[in-house]
Design a protein around this nucleic acid. Sequence first.
RNA 1: GCGGUCAUAGCUCAAUGGUAGAGCACCGGGUUGUGGUCCCGGCCACACGGGUUCAAUUCCCGUUGAUCGCCCCA
Length: 470
Amino acid sequence: MIIPKKVSRPTKAEEEKILELEEAKKKFVPTVALPTKGKKIPELLRGFRDILPDEQPYWDFFRDTARSLAESYGFERIELPILEKEELFIRTVGKQTDIVEKEIYTFEDKGGDKVILRPEMTASAARAYINHGMLNLPQPVKLWYMGPTFRYDRPQAGRYRQFNQFGLEAFGSNEPIIDAQIIVATFYLLKSLGIETTTRINSIGTPDSRLAYKTELAAYYRTKKNQICEDCKRRLLKNPLRLLDCKAEECQVVKEGAPQILDWLDEDSKNHFMRVLEFLDEAGVPYTLDPHLVRGLDYYNRTVFEIWAVSDEGERAQNALGGGGRYDGLVELLGGREGTPGCGVALGLERVVMAMKELKIQPPVKKIDVFFAQLGDSARRVGLRIFEDFRQSGISVREAFGKGSLKTQLENANKLEVPFTLILGQKEVLDGTIIVRDMESGAQEIVDAGKIVQIMKKKLEIIKSLDNKG
RNA sequence: GCGGUCAUAGCUCAAUGGUAGAGCACCGGGUUGUGGUCCCGGCCACACGGGUUCAAUUCCCGUUGAUCGCCCCA
């Protein structure tokens, strides 16, 4: 026997009535959006994300490590505006680059200025160097920065439209040791976080030699046009330097016979590069020579490099953690003193955090010392003051004033893995006492509420000294 | 900007052409004020829009988003 299941669905007439009602609602309550059948939930912009509390330990770990490391290498913090004049980046990053051609957020502000959400920070740093006459400071001027940057790119793992960069910049010295120091500092920064890296490095010489090489390379590839893949045919027209990056099998033979950029370097650049490598050898920092490495920003010259995580599973990492190089023409290009050299690196923080997670690196967690549990309003009132006493004496304390039952509060305390919970009820308030519960053993003692901070201080010290021994 | 894959609770995953289940998480309870285990209950979802159909979470199309590759980069 087949029993058709009854499906309730409004009839035409009913449907019309519903529509009518909804229209009426709109008219009567014009300021309030009424939830209808399709709930409208606010959505994030594509490529943007929230960094939630549970991810913050990774970020704190990075921030703390980066700050102390940068400063121990003599870099000083600079904060740069998020919005800059569009022109700044078109001139420096390069009009033809993908970053400027398709990835920048630009708009006109109310005053009619063409502004841009910064796609990177090196240009801003150079601008600041000029604006504030930093050429009068002892050179090199070494700066570090951290903050959000924006590129309107297609989002992917480790690639967002708003992402955070950390960077080091050194202006005013063309010594190869500066290039090396920046690479070394970056290496040790990531190492301190538990990420082993290797640096792919190359030299692209001066703009002139680079151009000459590019022409030569294109000429070579043009003679082999029928042996290369479709992608490469496109690259040949658009960005010949990228030809050397091709992974297609049919292109490998052609690639091997291609001219090498190192052969086209001028003597000074070649020398400079050799000395950078010598310094890296001396520092014991691993690197791989990568004659195919080119960078997409116009301002680079001589040394260019990328930082890659070394992973056990071979080449799983798709993205470099960071990159950088020398930009000797940048300051002058922006109208600063002729011949002011510079060199820097930038790390993509989302990528660093991603690497930490993949490598299962545990960031240090800030431990809570004491949980304060309360029962009833009088206990809460006293609790507020006790909480403040603890906070001011540097003991980290957590509470759950919003909770009523002791059971729930102890559950919270348990999840936080605190060593001690303080329990304050009606009775204790009247007696001027407070219960101290050892969460591991469950042992409790009743102590004088007036001395609670000193008592807990002692107990915590004992625990800490035991931890250090064990 | 181009191509492939995908979209079910806060998370991880089921099932189904007849409007959906679990585990974890969250909230509450297992008699008076005691956690880590256990038991009970509650909350919460078919991304959005359209089409085919008596009926769509399921099939088709579009949108949005994620993901992988290209491009590029951090």
